[in-house]
């Protein structure tokens, strides 16, 4: 089975920096921004986007994590998954602009679950979605506001996001497919 790298470490860094710029542009600054990552790799990406937002705007942006496991609609179709911790930054999310961050956007079901999880924490003014890779094949009416890379795929292919801090490499790779 063939594997090829579609984003290198430098590509990932550039994509996240661009996303941070776009978030600041859309929000007209860093006021009332909260970045919430979806475990596992979304949390790492959220941290990096948070760092980039502070570097660009000179203003610290609260970063948290929102776990969607217990809100999923496919729990009964899979072996039990252990939930991951949810961390809500001081100040909460009420009335804030929350940017959800995940690594890969695929069916949209994780994001649906994460939106439910968010509403159990509070009521944001706006929720935006940032993803490193959008690979298509949505099963729900959900789209990303900020995308690192659009990657049209076939369903037989698999996407691997590897990040320093969790994996021993940093890249986005694609495996398999009939091409």
């Amino acid at each position: 089975m063939s594997t090829r790298t579609v984003l290198s470490q430098a590509d990932i860094h550039r994509a996240l920096t661009r996303i941070a710029h776009e978030i600041l542009e859309g929000n007209r600054g860093a006021d009332d921004l909260v970045v919430m990552g979806i475990p596992t790799r979304g949390v790492l990406l959220a941290d990096r986007i948070g760092d980039a937002l502070r570097a660009i705007s000179g203003q610290a942006v609260p970063v948290g994590a929102v776990d969607a496991t217990l809100f999923r609609d496919d729990l009964r179709r899979q072996p039990t998954r252990a939930p991951r911790p949810t961390t809500v930054p001081d100040g909460g999310i009420d009335g804030k602009t929350v940017v959800l961050v995940d690594d890969v956007l695929y069916s949209g079901r994780t994001i649906r679950a994460a939106l439910d999880a968010l509403s159990a924490i509070g009521r944001p003014r706006v929720v935006r979605l940032a993803v490193l890779v959008d690979r298509g094949h949505r099963e729900l009416p959900i789209r990303a506001d900020y995308v690192g890379k659009n990657l049209p795929t076939s369903t037989s292919e698999r996407i691997f996001v590897r990040l320093d801090g969790i994996d021993d490499a940093e890249e986005v790779a694609i495996e398999g497919g009939d091409r």
Binding site: D67, L70, L75, A82, P85, T86, S119, A120, I121
Partner: peptide
């Protein structure tokens, strides 16, 4: 340890605005 860790996550739920999960 897995059970105790998941119980930690469940305990966090009781601090949320909505203390209920659809699980």
């Amino acid at each position: 340890i897995r059970i105790l860790d998941i119980a930690e996550d469940m305990a966090d739920v009781s601090t949320r605005e909505v203390r209920k999960l659809p699980t």
